[in-house]
C-alpha cells in the first residue's frame, strides 16, 4: 500500500502580519514557520494506518514551497513518514489553490497512491480546496472533514463532522483522498531517535516547473488587516490596574456583579 500525505508549512498564527512587497500576501520577515495544524492530523493518521498494517504501507510526505518547507517534511518523516518529496517553488504563495492541487496531482498521477491524506484546510490561506481538487483531478473517491477514520481491506470508513455537533458516516473504496479535521487523532511528538533517523531519509526534490501546467484562475489583489468592527475597550498595563478597571466596567455595564 502506498500512502501520500500532503502537508503545508504555515507561519505561526500568533505572529503580526504585514503585506510583502507585492502587496498581495504577507511578508516573511521575522516569522516562525511550522507544519499546518490540520496536516499534522493527516501525518498521524497515515502513521497509525502504517502501524495497523504491520508497517507494510510506504508513507510519502510531500510539500510544495520554498526551501524552508524541507523542515516541515522532516517533521513528517520524524513522526513516521518513510520518504519525502519537496516540490521546490519559491513563489508557491502566488499560486492559487487550483494550481497547487494540479501540481500535486501531476506528481501523484503516475505513482499509484492508494490513499492520499491531507488537512481539511491550511491555516494561512484556508481555502479547503486543495485536497478535494486533487481527488477530482485523479478521479479518486474523496471524503472531507474527517473526525473518525477506519481502514480495512481497501475500504475507508470516515466520520465527517457536520454542523451543530452532528456527524455523518461515509464509506469509500481506495484509491481515495481524505481531508482531516482537527481532533481526528492525537498527533505524536517526534522522539529524538526518530528525529535523528529522519535526517537520513530520502527527500526527493522536484522543481515546480516540471509539474505546473495550469494557469491561475484566481488572482490575489490585496492583503490587509480587517476593518475593526469591534469597539472593544482595550485594557493594557499593570495587572492590578487591569483587574480594577475590568471590575469597574463589569459593575457599570452588566448586572452580573453587584
Amino acid at each position: 500500500m502506498k500512502i501520500l500525505v500532503c502537508i503545508k508549512q504555515v507561519p505561526d498564527m500568533e505572529s503580526r502580519f504585514k503585506p510583502d512587497a507585492s502587496g498581495v500576501w504577507f511578508a516573511e520577515t521575522d516569522l516562525a514557520f511550522r507544519v499546518n495544524e490540520y496536516d499534522e492530523y493527516a501525518v498521524e493518521q497515515a502513521v497509525l494506518l502504517k502501524e495497523q498494517l504491520g508497517g507494510e504501507p510506504e508513507v510519502t510526505v510531500l510539500s510544495v514551497g520554498a526551501d524552508r518547507v524541507v523542515e516541515a517534511i522532516k517533521k513528517g518523516l520524524s513522526m513516521g513518514g518513510d520518504r519525502g518529496v519537496h516540490v521546490q517553488d519559491a513563489a508557491a504563495h502566488l499560486k492559487d489553490s487550483w494550481q497547487v492541487a494540479s501540481i500535486i496531482a501531476a506528481y501523484a498521477v503516475g505513482e499509484g497512491f492508494d490513499l492520499i491524506l491531507t488537512g481539511l484546510q491550511s491555516q494561512d490561506r484556508g481555502s479547503a480546496q486543495v485536497g478535494v481538487t486533487i481527488a477530482e483531478l485523479l478521479d479518486y473517491a474523496c471524503a472531507t472533514t474527517a473526525v473518525g477514520f477506519e481502514y480495512a481491506d481497501g475500504t475507508v470508513t470516515v466520520k465527517r463532522e457536520l454542523e451543530g455537533g452532528v456527524k455523518g458516516t461515509v464509506r469509500l473504496k481506495t484509491p481515495a483522498v481524505v481531508t482531516c479535521q482537527l481532533g481526528l487523532n492525537q498527533p505524536r511528538y517526534p522522539t529524538l531517535p526518530n528525529i535523528m533517523k529522519a535526517k537520513k531519509k530520502e527527500v526527493r526534490v522536484i522543481p515546480v516547473a516540471e509539474l505546473l501546467h495550469q494557469e491561475q484562475r484566481v488572482a490575489p489583489v490585496e492583503f490587509r488587516a480587517p476593518a475593526r468592527k469591534g469597539s472593544a475597550v482595550v485594557l493594557e498595563g499593570e495587572l492590578a490596574d487591569q483587574v480594577d478597571r475590568l471590575i469597574g466596567i463589569l459593575k457599570d455595564k452588566t448586572a452580573v456583579l453587584r
Partner: peptide
C-alpha cells in the same frame, strides 16, 4: 475573504 486564521483579509479576483 479571511486568511491567516481570520486575522487578516485578502481580496481576490476570479478569472472567467
Amino acid at each position: 475573504r479571511p486568511c491567516l486564521s481570520q486575522k487578516m483579509r485578502q481580496v481576490v479576483k476570479p478569472q472567467g
